[in-house]
């Protein structure tokens, strides 16, 4: 658990501006992106901006890595692939991450974002993140 870094992540100006918050139960973490008009990408549909949903899932991936282990700095994205499955409506978005593998330097993470029904995700993300776990003390 890296609680101090989770605070740092959520207090970063960009993350705070869009009001992202985490709901945690132990090492389980759900991200919440509260709906605001400034998240809308195309008002004619209307749908949330793909970039806003993608960025939110990146934040949740970082949060999940920090909630699952002790890291000494924020994870840095190496690459992400985002699939958009349905238009994200003008409503709150939720996301949860599954850590595929978390090694000594790199972590593989999948994130799923949904709105009304969890079985009907609006977008998924698959990415790799550079991480720096706390060194294991030699005994």
């Amino acid at each position: 658990m890296s609680d101090a870094l989770i605070e740092t992540l959520l207090k970063a100006p960009y993350v705070a501006k869009f009001g992202v918050r985490f709901e945690r139960k132990g090492d389980e973490l759900t991200g919440v992106l509260p709906y605001e008009e400034h998240l809308v990408g195309n008002p004619l549909v209307p749908a949330l901006h793909g970039g806003a949903v993608g960025a939110f899932m990146e934040i949740v991936a970082s949060g999940a890595l920090l909630a699952s282990q002790t890291l000494v700095r924020l994870p840095k994205p190496i690459d992400v692939a985002v699939d958009y499955l349905r238009p994200a409506r003008a409503a709150d978005v939720y996301a949860r991450a599954v850590i595929g593998r978390s090694g000594a330097r790199v972590a593989n993470v999948r994130v799923e974002a949904w709105q009304g029904r969890r079985e009907a995700p609006v977008a998924t993300l698959h990415g790799h993140f550079l991480i720096k776990p706390e060194p294991v003390a030699n005994s």
Partner: peptide
Amino acid sequence: EDLIGDPDTGVMHGGVVTALLDH
């Protein structure tokens, strides 16, 4: 400054790059 992702380095958040590229 209101789009910074890492307050220690002052680097803008990756989400800005994501949204810019998507747009």
